[in-house]
Design a binder for these strands. Structure first.
Lengths: 111, 111
DNA sequence: TTTATTCATCGTATATTTACGATATTAAAT
DNA sequence: ATTTAATATCGTAAATATACGATGAATAAA
Protein backbone atom coordinates (compact mmCIF):
# COMPACT_ATOMS: atom_id res chain seq x y z
CA UNK A 1 0.00 0.00 0.00
CA UNK A 2 2.36 2.55 -1.29
CA UNK A 3 3.84 2.32 2.20
CA UNK A 4 3.03 0.27 5.23
CA UNK A 5 2.34 2.57 8.15
CA UNK A 6 0.89 -0.14 10.37
CA UNK A 7 4.11 -0.57 12.30
CA UNK A 8 4.01 3.08 13.32
CA UNK A 9 1.17 2.28 15.72
CA UNK A 10 1.41 0.85 19.21
CA UNK A 11 2.06 -2.84 19.60
CA UNK A 12 -1.27 -3.38 21.30
CA UNK A 13 -3.18 -1.62 18.57
CA UNK A 14 -1.38 -3.73 16.02
CA UNK A 15 -2.25 -6.92 17.87
CA UNK A 16 -5.90 -5.91 18.15
CA UNK A 17 -5.97 -5.13 14.46
CA UNK A 18 -4.32 -8.43 13.59
CA UNK A 19 -6.87 -10.39 15.58
CA UNK A 20 -9.68 -8.44 13.97
CA UNK A 21 -8.16 -8.95 10.56
CA UNK A 22 -8.09 -12.70 11.09
CA UNK A 23 -11.85 -12.56 11.58
CA UNK A 24 -12.56 -9.96 8.92
CA UNK A 25 -13.81 -12.45 6.34
CA UNK A 26 -17.03 -14.42 6.79
CA UNK A 27 -15.29 -17.59 5.65
CA UNK A 28 -12.84 -17.34 8.52
CA UNK A 29 -15.60 -16.56 11.02
CA UNK A 30 -17.42 -19.63 9.75
CA UNK A 31 -14.33 -21.81 10.00
CA UNK A 32 -13.70 -20.77 13.59
CA UNK A 33 -17.30 -21.53 14.47
CA UNK A 34 -17.13 -24.95 12.87
CA UNK A 35 -13.90 -25.82 14.63
CA UNK A 36 -15.34 -24.70 17.96
CA UNK A 37 -18.51 -26.72 17.53
CA UNK A 38 -16.76 -29.95 16.70
CA UNK A 39 -14.48 -30.88 19.55
CA UNK A 40 -12.94 -33.40 17.26
CA UNK A 41 -11.17 -31.35 14.67
CA UNK A 42 -12.11 -31.38 11.07
CA UNK A 43 -10.17 -31.14 7.89
CA UNK A 44 -11.68 -31.30 4.45
CA UNK A 45 -15.17 -31.42 5.81
CA UNK A 46 -14.85 -27.68 6.07
CA UNK A 47 -14.46 -27.54 2.33
CA UNK A 48 -17.75 -29.39 1.86
CA UNK A 49 -19.63 -26.97 4.06
CA UNK A 50 -18.23 -23.73 2.72
CA UNK A 51 -19.10 -22.24 -0.67
CA UNK A 52 -15.47 -22.01 -1.66
CA UNK A 53 -12.94 -23.99 -3.61
CA UNK A 54 -10.63 -26.30 -1.71
CA UNK A 55 -7.58 -24.17 -2.40
CA UNK A 56 -9.34 -21.07 -1.14
CA UNK A 57 -10.31 -22.78 2.11
CA UNK A 58 -6.73 -23.92 2.54
CA UNK A 59 -5.65 -20.33 2.14
CA UNK A 60 -8.06 -19.09 4.80
CA UNK A 61 -6.91 -21.83 7.15
CA UNK A 62 -3.34 -20.76 6.60
CA UNK A 63 -4.19 -17.20 7.54
CA UNK A 64 -5.91 -18.33 10.71
CA UNK A 65 -2.83 -20.37 11.56
CA UNK A 66 -0.63 -17.38 10.88
CA UNK A 67 -2.73 -15.34 13.27
CA UNK A 68 -2.21 -18.09 15.81
CA UNK A 69 -5.91 -18.83 16.21
CA UNK A 70 -5.78 -22.28 14.65
CA UNK A 71 -3.30 -25.11 14.58
CA UNK A 72 -3.17 -28.13 12.37
CA UNK A 73 -1.47 -31.46 12.05
CA UNK A 74 -1.22 -33.95 9.27
CA UNK A 75 -2.99 -37.23 9.98
CA UNK A 76 -2.40 -39.75 7.30
CA UNK A 77 -3.55 -38.27 4.04
CA UNK A 78 -5.92 -36.00 5.89
CA UNK A 79 -5.22 -32.74 7.65
CA UNK A 80 -6.59 -32.01 11.05
CA UNK A 81 -7.26 -28.49 12.26
CA UNK A 82 -8.41 -27.18 15.57
CA UNK A 83 -8.54 -24.00 17.55
CA UNK A 84 -5.35 -22.98 19.28
CA UNK A 85 -6.99 -22.22 22.58
CA UNK A 86 -3.95 -20.75 24.28
CA UNK A 87 -3.54 -17.92 21.82
CA UNK A 88 -7.25 -17.69 21.08
CA UNK A 89 -7.96 -17.11 24.77
CA UNK A 90 -5.26 -14.48 24.94
CA UNK A 91 -6.56 -12.67 21.88
CA UNK A 92 -10.13 -12.83 23.12
CA UNK A 93 -9.18 -11.40 26.49
CA UNK A 94 -7.17 -8.64 24.91
CA UNK A 95 -9.97 -7.78 22.54
CA UNK A 96 -12.58 -8.00 25.27
CA UNK A 97 -10.44 -5.60 27.24
CA UNK A 98 -10.77 -3.07 24.46
CA UNK A 99 -14.48 -3.61 24.03
CA UNK A 100 -15.13 -3.38 27.76
CA UNK A 101 -13.11 -0.23 28.16
CA UNK A 102 -15.16 1.23 25.35
CA UNK A 103 -18.34 0.30 27.14
CA UNK A 104 -17.09 1.87 30.36
CA UNK A 105 -16.32 5.10 28.59
CA UNK A 106 -19.77 5.17 27.16
CA UNK A 107 -21.21 8.53 28.12
CA UNK A 108 -23.15 10.79 25.85
CA UNK A 109 -22.49 11.23 22.20
CA UNK A 110 -21.91 14.87 21.46
CA UNK A 111 -22.86 14.49 17.82
CA UNK B 1 -11.48 -10.48 -6.09
CA UNK B 2 -12.31 -12.38 -9.19
CA UNK B 3 -15.66 -12.91 -7.51
CA UNK B 4 -17.14 -11.85 -4.23
CA UNK B 5 -18.21 -14.90 -2.28
CA UNK B 6 -18.79 -13.04 0.96
CA UNK B 7 -22.52 -12.83 0.42
CA UNK B 8 -22.72 -16.61 0.23
CA UNK B 9 -22.20 -16.79 3.97
CA UNK B 10 -24.75 -16.37 6.73
CA UNK B 11 -25.87 -12.86 7.61
CA UNK B 12 -24.47 -13.14 11.11
CA UNK B 13 -21.09 -14.28 9.89
CA UNK B 14 -21.05 -11.37 7.48
CA UNK B 15 -21.89 -8.92 10.24
CA UNK B 16 -19.19 -10.32 12.49
CA UNK B 17 -16.70 -10.07 9.67
CA UNK B 18 -17.75 -6.51 8.91
CA UNK B 19 -17.29 -5.45 12.49
CA UNK B 20 -13.90 -7.16 12.61
CA UNK B 21 -12.93 -5.57 9.33
CA UNK B 22 -13.70 -2.12 10.68
CA UNK B 23 -11.14 -2.78 13.42
CA UNK B 24 -8.66 -4.61 11.25
CA UNK B 25 -6.30 -1.66 10.87
CA UNK B 26 -4.33 -0.22 13.81
CA UNK B 27 -5.24 3.29 12.73
CA UNK B 28 -8.92 2.53 13.18
CA UNK B 29 -8.33 0.83 16.51
CA UNK B 30 -6.42 3.91 17.60
CA UNK B 31 -9.16 6.25 16.39
CA UNK B 32 -11.83 4.34 18.30
CA UNK B 33 -9.72 4.44 21.44
CA UNK B 34 -9.16 8.18 21.10
CA UNK B 35 -12.85 8.85 20.57
CA UNK B 36 -13.76 6.72 23.57
CA UNK B 37 -11.26 8.46 25.84
CA UNK B 38 -12.39 11.97 25.02
CA UNK B 39 -16.02 12.29 25.90
CA UNK B 40 -16.03 15.52 23.96
CA UNK B 41 -15.51 14.42 20.42
CA UNK B 42 -12.52 15.38 18.42
CA UNK B 43 -11.93 16.18 14.80
CA UNK B 44 -8.57 17.12 13.34
CA UNK B 45 -6.77 16.48 16.58
CA UNK B 46 -6.84 12.87 15.52
CA UNK B 47 -4.76 13.81 12.54
CA UNK B 48 -2.12 15.36 14.80
CA UNK B 49 -1.84 12.25 16.92
CA UNK B 50 -1.73 9.66 14.17
CA UNK B 51 1.26 9.06 11.88
CA UNK B 52 -0.87 9.48 8.79
CA UNK B 53 -1.75 12.19 6.30
CA UNK B 54 -4.96 14.12 6.84
CA UNK B 55 -6.63 12.60 3.83
CA UNK B 56 -5.79 9.11 4.99
CA UNK B 57 -7.28 9.74 8.41
CA UNK B 58 -10.40 11.09 6.76
CA UNK B 59 -10.63 7.89 4.80
CA UNK B 60 -10.35 5.72 7.90
CA UNK B 61 -12.99 7.83 9.63
CA UNK B 62 -15.26 7.32 6.67
CA UNK B 63 -14.86 3.57 6.90
CA UNK B 64 -15.67 3.60 10.58
CA UNK B 65 -18.77 5.65 9.78
CA UNK B 66 -19.72 3.20 7.08
CA UNK B 67 -19.44 0.36 9.57
CA UNK B 68 -21.75 2.37 11.82
CA UNK B 69 -19.23 2.57 14.66
CA UNK B 70 -18.69 6.31 14.42
CA UNK B 71 -20.81 9.29 13.55
CA UNK B 72 -19.80 12.81 12.71
CA UNK B 73 -21.22 16.25 12.32
CA UNK B 74 -19.89 19.44 10.83
CA UNK B 75 -19.33 22.16 13.41
CA UNK B 76 -18.29 25.38 11.78
CA UNK B 77 -15.24 24.76 9.73
CA UNK B 78 -14.35 21.82 11.94
CA UNK B 79 -15.69 18.30 11.91
CA UNK B 80 -16.74 16.51 15.03
CA UNK B 81 -16.63 12.75 15.36
CA UNK B 82 -17.75 10.49 18.10
CA UNK B 83 -18.61 6.88 18.72
CA UNK B 84 -22.04 5.76 17.65
CA UNK B 85 -22.84 3.97 20.88
CA UNK B 86 -26.08 2.40 19.76
CA UNK B 87 -24.56 0.42 16.95
CA UNK B 88 -21.24 0.02 18.70
CA UNK B 89 -22.98 -1.63 21.64
CA UNK B 90 -24.88 -3.89 19.31
CA UNK B 91 -21.77 -4.93 17.47
CA UNK B 92 -19.84 -5.48 20.69
CA UNK B 93 -22.56 -7.68 22.10
CA UNK B 94 -22.81 -9.68 18.93
CA UNK B 95 -19.08 -10.13 18.76
CA UNK B 96 -18.83 -10.95 22.45
CA UNK B 97 -21.49 -13.54 21.85
CA UNK B 98 -19.22 -15.23 19.36
CA UNK B 99 -16.15 -14.98 21.56
CA UNK B 100 -18.00 -16.29 24.62
CA UNK B 101 -19.50 -19.20 22.75
CA UNK B 102 -15.99 -20.05 21.62
CA UNK B 103 -14.79 -20.00 25.19
CA UNK B 104 -17.62 -22.25 26.29
CA UNK B 105 -16.74 -24.74 23.64
CA UNK B 106 -13.18 -24.76 24.83
CA UNK B 107 -12.32 -28.36 25.53
CA UNK B 108 -9.15 -30.09 24.54
CA UNK B 109 -7.29 -29.48 21.36
CA UNK B 110 -6.91 -32.73 19.49
CA UNK B 111 -3.91 -31.50 17.56
C1' DT C 1 3.04 -51.03 -8.21
C1' DT C 2 -0.52 -48.40 -9.81
C1' DT C 3 -4.33 -45.62 -8.74
C1' DA C 4 -7.14 -42.77 -6.09
C1' DT C 5 -7.68 -39.46 -2.30
C1' DT C 6 -6.55 -35.54 0.49
C1' DC C 7 -4.60 -31.65 0.89
C1' DA C 8 -0.93 -27.70 0.27
C1' DT C 9 1.19 -24.73 -2.76
C1' DC C 10 1.96 -22.15 -7.13
C1' DG C 11 0.59 -19.11 -10.58
C1' DT C 12 -2.50 -15.82 -11.82
C1' DA C 13 -6.49 -12.65 -12.47
C1' DT C 14 -9.20 -9.39 -10.34
C1' DA C 15 -10.85 -6.66 -6.47
C1' DT C 16 -9.98 -4.08 -2.50
C1' DT C 17 -7.19 -1.49 0.74
C1' DT C 18 -3.96 1.75 2.01
C1' DA C 19 -1.64 5.89 1.41
C1' DC C 20 -0.66 10.37 -0.39
C1' DG C 21 -0.84 14.86 -2.79
C1' DA C 22 -3.79 17.96 -5.09
C1' DT C 23 -7.94 20.13 -5.23
C1' DA C 24 -12.58 21.59 -3.79
C1' DT C 25 -15.58 23.27 -0.16
C1' DT C 26 -17.04 25.74 3.63
C1' DA C 27 -16.75 28.84 7.24
C1' DA C 28 -14.06 31.84 10.21
C1' DA C 29 -10.80 35.62 10.47
C1' DT C 30 -8.70 39.72 8.56
C1' DA D 1 -13.81 40.86 -0.25
C1' DT D 2 -9.71 38.22 0.62
C1' DT D 3 -7.21 35.21 3.09
C1' DT D 4 -6.64 31.45 6.17
C1' DA D 5 -7.95 27.13 8.28
C1' DA D 6 -10.21 22.65 8.56
C1' DT D 7 -11.85 18.87 6.07
C1' DA D 8 -13.73 16.03 2.50
C1' DT D 9 -13.14 14.19 -1.86
C1' DC D 10 -10.71 12.92 -6.20
C1' DG D 11 -7.19 10.75 -8.66
C1' DT D 12 -3.75 7.58 -8.48
C1' DA D 13 0.03 4.34 -7.25
C1' DA D 14 1.34 0.48 -4.82
C1' DA D 15 0.34 -3.30 -1.73
C1' DT D 16 -2.81 -6.96 -0.16
C1' DA D 17 -6.53 -9.92 -0.28
C1' DT D 18 -9.57 -13.05 -2.50
C1' DA D 19 -10.57 -16.65 -5.51
C1' DC D 20 -9.69 -20.38 -8.61
C1' DG D 21 -7.59 -24.05 -11.45
C1' DA D 22 -3.55 -26.69 -12.06
C1' DT D 23 -0.04 -29.09 -10.16
C1' DG D 24 2.64 -31.50 -6.63
C1' DA D 25 3.37 -34.40 -2.63
C1' DA D 26 2.20 -37.89 0.42
C1' DT D 27 -0.47 -41.57 2.01
C1' DA D 28 -3.98 -45.12 1.61
C1' DA D 29 -6.32 -48.40 -1.25
C1' DA D 30 -6.42 -51.50 -5.18
Amino acid sequence: MAQNKKTDFSGIDQEMANFAKALSHPARVAIIKILAEQNSCICGEIVEVLPLAQSTVSQHLKELQLAGLVKGTVDGKKSCYCINWETMQQSIQQFNGLLNSLNERKTFSCC
